[in-house]
Design a protein around this nucleic acid. Sequence first.
DNA 1: TTGTAGGCGTTATCAG
DNA 2: CTGATAACGCCTACAA
Lengths: 345, 345
Amino acid sequence: MPRAPSASSRSTGPVTLGMVAQASGVSPSTVSRILNGTAIVSPEKRAAVDRAIAELGFVPNPVARGLAGGRTLSVGVVTQTLDSPFYGVALRGIEDVLDAAGYSALFVSGHWDVAVEKRCIDTLRSRRVDGLIILNGAMGDAELKGLAKDLPVVVTGRTLKATGLIALDFKHFEGARLATQHLIDLGHRDIGHLSGDIEHPDARERLAGYRAALEAAGLPFRPELVETGLYCEEGGRTATERMLAQGLRFSALFAGNDQMAFGAAVALHKRGLRVPTDVSLVGFDDLTLAAHMTPPLTTVHQASFELGLAAARSLMALLADEKPKLTLPEPRLVVRDSTGPAPKR
Amino acid sequence: MPRAPSASSRSTGPVTLGMVAQASGVSPSTVSRILNGTAIVSPEKRAAVDRAIAELGFVPNPVARGLAGGRTLSVGVVTQTLDSPFYGVALRGIEDVLDAAGYSALFVSGHWDVAVEKRCIDTLRSRRVDGLIILNGAMGDAELKGLAKDLPVVVTGRTLKATGLIALDFKHFEGARLATQHLIDLGHRDIGHLSGDIEHPDARERLAGYRAALEAAGLPFRPELVETGLYCEEGGRTATERMLAQGLRFSALFAGNDQMAFGAAVALHKRGLRVPTDVSLVGFDDLTLAAHMTPPLTTVHQASFELGLAAARSLMALLADEKPKLTLPEPRLVVRDSTGPAPKR
DNA sequence: TTGTAGGCGTTATCAG
DNA sequence: CTGATAACGCCTACAA
């Protein structure tokens, strides 16, 4: 009996469903039914077909399937950049789930540009993806809802209700509250915040969480201690430099995300300020690298892998006409070495 | 005149080539010819068709195209993990080129496992991709050559000659030599090396480059100063800890890649050793984060974005029956703050 | 230069 | 339960 499918099939070109049908003495429709479980077939025929499939090393052609059945068993995944340290992990989660379900992913990058994002989605639709996962998209809620009318959609980074649409989001407010509270517990009173661009809803929520923690502890919210920057190393570095240049006093810094925290660390280092001796530093996200920074970074863990899993599972559910409202893990503070007691004053 | 394609097409389902043909009073084949440039058509018909396409907002269906023509305008990209800080950037380069050429990418992860890698490739083939880009694959050269007989293939991370196959690789030896030479120039004589797993050809080449630089400078190669570990933060950390535990003396460390350097920095930090005051540290790759480490890391720049571009362009060339042997930028030393003069002894 | 007819590999809709 | 017979949307001989 012939062995490796890829070897046996190569001799006469790809094995087709029709060939399987012929080899097992049934009609193509029957083979198709067995493949898809579309109808009950007699055990004998089923056995014959199964054997033929194995012997010929038949693999269904997804392209033909897509044309005939309208389902391509592929889903589009829109990210901002493929090489994001945060979303990269989520992509892995998505891939795992889709793969197990027999789906393939088409990853595309929107580059934080609504227009590009739309082009991507058009491409994806032209390729007849069965559904869409949009990781923190830039487009408006209304358009998203419109999309969902046509195609099952899962979005992250916003809360939104619509038919054919599932939205998944983290609890940024709570995470930021935890981080700030941790600093307060360590005795810090002059706590700065490096906020991400206020355009981002999550940046707003994190700022609100920071503020809430402060106020709950009876500490004043001081706007001058909040600097805004891009959600990246550069953003964190320059924001910190600005605070330093203003001669502001602070013994702790809560960065809007880990990348900003990395940048902040560089800025502090250049000023001769030690972490955590002189300044305590907290990040947000818990990137892989956070644990390997010097010193290892205290941060708020966001389960981005689980986000990927949940997004993909939600989409699978949507495609199966279910609606299982999956939930994400709570944010969790991970205390490492970048935070310490406030210096005496 | 109807506007947005996605809007106008929605009313009566997707616009097909046949509808365009009818609307412009020509046969479907003529439309197809215009679309593909397969034959010369009269200016009038061309104009009529172009107008109909624009008015109807027609977008060819890649799925049907794939079935009929055998070309899917999609290519498979095999990586080890989607969220690799090094290859992630290359993926961006690939995406850029492919996108501009009207191709879509199917990204899959092999997880450093030959078996998984093969399954991925089978999936990709079943989806009828037009070509394959394999980023540092784990499978053997022979199998790769076999694959290339069937399908255009571009591989990175090895040198290999075969028809239908283009191999792209960096000059690891030269990069390592540069890094080590830099340390020697700074007066260091006890230079350790944190090598990646010797299974990896690039790790071997880097080790050889390190050794060559040493010997060219008349310094002895001391095997005890070479520790091996995985190409990741953990690997670098534990390797460094082992060297430290053995009481070895060294004033500089050349890490096999940036991630190992990050890990090394943590290990040194824990021991109270300062970078670069006590120990100079050089990495390899020049990840985005290298510039944002504290202190910013001196490292060997590898143009991974360009690698992605070159890989994709090579594949496009292969698909066009050309063979343009693209070349990669030379490795380049980027001196930042993690290296300094050797302490006096 | 252009149209017609057949086919790519499956699925879906019918009868039986 | 099963088998013909049409699609699916496009490409490509072949013929005109």
